[in-house]
């Protein structure tokens, strides 16, 4: 009985609690350190969350479709390295480097989509393997060297990462614009509806004449498009990149998507909620830094957040915190 009541509480917490906890966290930190809520700090958090946020938008589609994409961090490193290298290549230059990089990144996304969608391979295995494969591909491509733009004054390439418009950083504008477009795609178009149907119940979707494989394929294509965009922002901001610039981001992205309330079982979540999840994660990490904790503590915190979010999601589904059967 007690367990049931606890479970109901967990259910409410899972639906609303993350927002409540977030607000409490914000109030607590603001009282403790007024700098936390300052305009500069808030803007700083939003700006530094843009790259993660853009990637999380794409992964939202994959997760709602009932799959995972763990290759996004590694793939982001790849796109940053590739776009920088082609930028330095006289045959390309910035104007051609960008579309070429998008094409290469999305080709890898298409391969993920083909393997998971059409061949029905387990998405965890496919994209975890892809994480490793792309890392190898990136190192092969770069010869293990970091990539830098030699003459940073002579290129307009920096606008994606460093530019501002009307006083707002371009990365934030890209994040907001992409979020708006993808929110409409997911919520308002037949394709979006099919993503929810396939993730909610792929058998029933198939029985309703929904082309499951094609829908899954496109979720991965969208994910890789977002990764390419993130890679572009990253490369443009630093005008140089290490082979490992995206390492570990896959987990942070997943944490943001789950924090936003998308179920790992598929079929639920929205673009807007993911944006909230990204901001929550950003503010928590920022708060911990302001509290004087070392940067790497955030890796542990990310793990704790994922565990809590997943547990609460499952508890909400079965209406209790623990159950011997699924």
């Amino acid at each position: 009985m007690k367990n049931d009541r606890l479970g109901k509480f967990a259910g409410v917490l899972a639906r609303q609690g993350i927002l409540v906890a977030f607000i409490l966290f914000m109030i607590g930190f603001s009282l403790w350190n007024a700098r936390f809520i300052s305009v500069e700090n808030v803007f700083g958090v939003v700006r530094s969350s843009a790259i993660l946020g853009v990637m999380a938008l794409g992964v939202t589609f994959v997760v709602i479709g009932g799959n995972l994409d763990l290759s996004v961090g590694s793939l982001m490193s790849f796109s940053a390295i590739v776009v920088l290298d082609l930028h330095e290549n006289p045959a390309f230059g910035p104007a051609l480097a960008i579309p070429a990089m998008f094409a290469m990144t999305m080709a890898i996304g298409a391969l993920n989509g083909f393997l998971v969608g059409y061949l029905r391979l387990n998405s965890l295995i496919v994209t975890l393997g892809m994480l490793s494969a792309i890392h190898g591909l990136t190192l092969t491509y770069s010869g293990g060297q970091n990539m830098d733009i030699a003459n940073q004054e002579a290129t307009w390439f920096g606008i994606f990462g460093r530019g501002t418009a009307l006083g707002i950083p371009i990365p934030v504008l890209i994040f907001a614009g992409l979020a708006a477009v993808l929110a409409i795609l997911l919520a308002k178009t037949p394709f979006g509806r099919k993503v929810y149907a396939v993730g909610g119940n792929e058998v029933a979707a198939t029985f309703s004449g929904i082309p499951r494989a094609r829908v899954v394929f496109f979720t991965y294509l969208i994910s890789s498009f977002c990764v390419a965009t993130a890679g572009l922002i990253q490369a443009s901001r630093t005008m140089g990149a290490q082979n490992t610039v995206g390492q570990g981001l896959e987990l942070e992205v997943l944490a943001a998507v789950i924090l936003g309330g998308a179920s790992l079982l598929g079929g639920s979540g929205t673009v807007f909620k993911t944006v909230i999840g990204v901001l929550i994660l950003g503010f928590i990490q920022n708060g911990l830094l302001l509290a004087g904790l070392e940067f790497y503590v955030q890796f542990v915190v990310t793990w704790i957040i994922i565990i809590l979010a997943v547990w609460l999601d499952i508890a909400a589904k079965r209406g209790r915190l623990w159950s011997p059967i699924a």
């Binding site: 037949p190 509806r193 929810y196 149907a197 909610g200 058998v203 029933a204 979707a205 079929g267």
Partner: peptide, 24 residues
């Protein structure tokens, strides 16, 4: 439940699912 319905979806979206591409 397994083959007929997407249980998490609302009633309307379940009914229109097979023809959603045409209802635009």
């Amino acid at each position: 439940k397994e083959q007929g319905l997407v249980l998490g979806m609302n009633c309307r979206d379940n009914i229109t699912l097979p023809q959603v591409s045409d209802l635009v």
